[in-house]
Design a protein around this nucleic acid. Structure first.
Lengths: 195, 195
DNA sequence: CCGACAATGATAACAGTGTCAACATAAGAG
DNA sequence: CTCTTATGTTGACACTGTTATCATTGTCGG
């Protein structure tokens, strides 16, 4: 007699790693502080804890992969916003607001990115990482005013990134309560002129 | 015969808690990512791990106390800078630079503050906490231009705080390499006018 | 088709962690 | 001096990341 259902669970999962990343992502999104346990994750996957070591050298590598995925989403979001908003001052403002908004809507992913980055050993491919961050900075930098020297544009981009990054962090840490109008006001206040 | 030396160590430490906070602080300052273990700390104190539970309800409370101490130092530093720099635009710039500089020089303490704050249960006295942060924001806000409405000043203070906070974070996370001139340029770029 | 081999999984164990219960010692009040 | 309170210790529990060893599956050459 043929088994009606696949006998409980097959010994091999098919594509762990993808599954681990997916529901690892979900698990992190559901919290507001990124906190992932290997064993808990394995339990959710219906798999043994040590099985994950066939796909990631250690827990840090897994978190790095998740951070990279999160960074990709953030970067894509920024690029989309930059394209939609067009150039000029208004575009810049919208892109900045988008950054803060994404952080507020995905607090745990946002935190994950910047907790993992800056670790002594960020284990993922530095090329991917560089690309992702280039895309992020690019989304911010594209809307810089044209009448600036390259140096000025760099400083301006860093200024803008610092501003929205700090604002997002302060909101996530509960130091200032989120309010879209407030965010807009703060970002709008940035007014570049060479001086 | 009288014991020449105090027989090894007395059963009671005299003032644990103070000692725990002190060398806990030292241990954190020596790293660049705040990572403290109860048992390691207790070992350094020459005391059993569970002894700490007579002075702190749990590890989080200990870290919160350390974060409060760190926040006090940062706030004092800001207040000192604000007083020394005087008011006006230049004063504001110097205070902002001071914030970033302190973060760069005390990366682990800076991180500790903002990792602990924003936790769901920050266990320390909210009054102290409020005071410390009021002092911090005060140091930033005192140098705001006078020709602004209160509302404008609030937005401006938040803008300034976000800027230096974000810049500090990005530097600590290795996204931009520290350079005093760069910091000055970025901070100087903030130029308040009603729009 | 079949056997060797690599890929992927499970089990058991180790060191380490925060935390609690029970017990031991010191200090202070009556 | 005794009783109480504050403080410190020992032992244990549940949990974690990690490793070594063994089991199962898929794959590829003959």
């Amino acid at each position: 007699m043929l088994p009606i259902l696949p006998v409980s669970a097959p010994y091999h999962h098919g594509d762990l790693r993808a599954a681990a990343l997916q529901i690892g992502m979900e698990r992190i999104e559901d919290q507001d502080h990124p906190d992932l346990g290997l064993r808990a994750l394995a339990r959710d996957l219906g798999v043994s804890a040590t099985a994950l070591y066939r796909h990631f050298p250690n827990k840090d590598a897994l978190l790095d992969a998740l951070a990279l995925e999160a960074l990709g989403r953030l970067g894509a979001n920024q690029a989309r916003a930059a394209e939609a908003a067009g150039g000029g001052r208004n575009g810049f403002i919208e892109v900045g607001i988008t950054y803060v908004t994404w952080a507020v809507e995905n607090p745990s992913l946002f935190r994950l990115i910047y907790t993992r980055v800056g670790k002594v050993d960020f284990d993922c491919d530095p090329t991917e990482m560089g690309e992702a961050f280039m895309q992020l900075r690019g989304g911010i930098a594209t809307t810089m005013p044209d009448n600036m020297s390259i140096e000025q544009r760099n400083v301006a981009a860093l200024h803008a990134w610092s501003l929205v990054h700090g604002l997002a962090m302060l909101i996530l840490d509960g130091q200032v309560e989120y309010d879209p109008d407030m965010v807009r006001n703060v970002v709008v206040m940035t007014d570049f002129r060479g001086s």
